[in-house]
Design a protein around this nucleic acid. Structure first.
Lengths: 133, 133
DNA sequence: GTCGACTTGTTATGATATAACATCTAATAT
DNA sequence: ATATTAGATGTTATATCATAACAAGTCGAC
């Protein structure tokens, strides 16, 4: 029994534990990295992490970075909308920054439209080096 | 011993076999799917496929779709340049189409520049439904 | 021929993700 | 209060994706 709540919401204990770790991390964490850090809290199996991640991703609080098979906390609550979310992944320090952009979203939707393609979800990941590296 | 060459180039036998399968496929193939199809040709282990894929990807003949952990043959030789390559993945039929776009590339580079971020590689994958689906 | 660079084959292992099923918990309908 | 039920959780096993490490073959340059 914890005496404090981890987030101001309807999250379950497992979801809160996973989200807390992601919020404290500078860089994306893999599901198994999260699992290892949560063993002290009683986690025993990957599914405990994956189920929490599924919910957090569905709620838009966490994003999965496909090119890393890892997860980051959402840095931009406005990312749910008409904008495209762009992740800039530093290949040196591992930090990821998130930006939303309407212009890119519009161009991508136009390109898709020209192909008769209907976009449900956009995934944009840039690899490179951040300002500090 | 085959009596015909698979591609007009310097590819090794394993690389040619992998590329041939990708060229004949409508949709992306996973490394293990390729392996299974190549057992008849003598393939025994994943590395035989991964090594061929590494070379093909490095040459730009094949792309890895991060969100699928699968591989497609390059549909647009012009994709190596200043353009951003965009993959449109149909979630119904599985087909993928590839487009290059300078406008999107420019916008992404501008956004990155504003952050002091230097882009080495862009990965853009759109999920949705193609014209036929 | 032999050296060196590259490709290949092989075994083992690591890393990521889900299926299937049992159990627990808490809100609510009776 | 008890039964119902929906969701969350725990657990074991397994599927899927990818690479490390090392031995052996191939082939051109010298």
């Amino acid at each position: 029994m914890t005496t404090e709540e981890h987030v101001p919401s309807d999250l379950t204990r497992n979801q809160s534990l996973v989200l807390d770790l992601l919020e404290k991390s500078d860089a994306p964490l893999s599901a198994y990295n999260l699992l290892d850090q949560l063993r002290a809290a009683g986690f025993r199996a990957p599914l405990q992490v994956y189920r929490a991640l599924d919910k957090l991703v569905a709620q838009g609080r966490v994003h999965r970075l496909e090119s890393l098979s890892a997860f980051v906390v959402c840095q931009d609550p406005a990312c749910i909308g008409h904008a495209a979310t762009v992740f800039m992944i530093c290949e040196k320090c591992g930090k990821v920054s998130e930006r939303s952009d309407n212009g890119v979203a519009r161009e991508l939707h136009e390109m898709a439209k020209a192909d008769g393609f209907t976009v449900n979800k956009t995934n944009i990941e840039l690899r490179g080096h951040c300002g500090k590296c």
